[in-house]
């Protein structure tokens, strides 16, 4: 059996005295879509940063594409990153570069391909994400959904084996969000890549995931296929799914005090 593309083994991380991730174990197989879900403060973003090699765990190990990313050499880590694409939540497009130049950047930085080849690759990816003909636009001229699509195009321009998507449909209206979900499924279907999606969007998670890991207070609360989670939701999981946003009591005096500073007696 092929080694999983990602293996997380007993990952625990502390920020000072606070435990932010506790005994996380998971694996992602070749071609699998894993969705990491959880509310604010659940630890899902922290887990993503560990998978990207941006944070060091206090305990445990993370293997990606066969490498222990916290113990391998810089050259080995660079090799892992070449086969990894990341679509950041806000898009993280360079505002001074056109859409096309944002997408071509990884190819120009990391390959010695001819310019003509790169041009075709960029236009192909724009076609895939349905931004054909928009390569000359600047990021500021794009809608929220277009920014997400451009970010996805840049993330997959090198045809990575592994794609990370941080909140790919957050802040989008339902129709545009569904389009992003479809695009993620299309990329996996055509390119066979493994995809890790971090999201708090329940509908999106259940639509695209092969497997869902639900985090709560830094620990795995539940994991399984969407069908398994639907069939056997624990009480805690149901509460998490049904949780309404907590709105603090409105304190008019305190608000006025904040507005006026110390002028209010």
């Amino acid at each position: 059996m092929a080694e999983p593309v990602i293996t997380v083994d007993a990952l625990t991380t502390h920020y000072g005295a606070q435990c932010v991730l506790r005994d996380i174990n998971l694996a992602v197989a070749e071609g699998e879509i894993l969705v990491i879900m959880g509310g604010s403060g659940s630890g899902k973003s922290t887990l993503l940063y560990h998978l990207l090699g941006l944070l060091e765990p206090t305990e445990g190990a993370i293997r990606i594409l066969g490498m222990d990313i916290n113990r391998c050499s810089n050259r080995e880590l660079e090799d892992v990153r070449r086969h990894t694409g990341v679509a950041f939540q806000g898009g993280a497009l360079f505002s001074s570069l056109s859409v096309g130049d944002n997408i071509r950047l990884p190819l120009e930085e990391h390959t010695g391909l001819d310019r003509s080849t790169i041009d075709i690759m960029v236009r192909m990816k724009l076609e895939v994400v349905e931004l054909a003909g928009r390569e000359h636009l600047m990021p500021s001229q794009l809608s929220g959904g277009m920014v997400k699509r451009a970010a996805l195009a840049r993330a997959v321009v090198m045809d990575p084996r592994l794609l990370f998507c941080d909140e790919p449909s957050a802040g989008l209206d339902p129709v545009v969000a569904a389009g992003i979900d479809d695009l993620i499924l299309k990329l996996r279907e055509a390119l066979g890549m493994s995809i890790v999606v971090v999201t708090h969007e329940l509908e999106s998670a259940f639509k695209i995931a092969d497997r869902i890991v639900v985090l709560d207070q830094g620990a795995i609360l539940a994991s399984g296929s969407p069908a398994e989670l639907r069939a056997h939701p624990s009480d805690k999981l149901q509460r998490l799914f049904n949780r309404q946003p907590e709105i603090p009591d409105f304190d008019a005096d305190a608000y006025l005090h904040r507005l006026m500073g110390d002028a209010v007696p």
Binding site: T111, L113, S116, T117, I118, I120, M121, M124, K125, V157, D159
Partner: peptide, 11 residues
């Protein structure tokens, strides 16, 4: 075949 290979075919 990745997109660089397909780009070569297109070219």
């Amino acid at each position: 075949i990745d997109s660089s290979g397909v780009a070569s075919l297109v070219e």
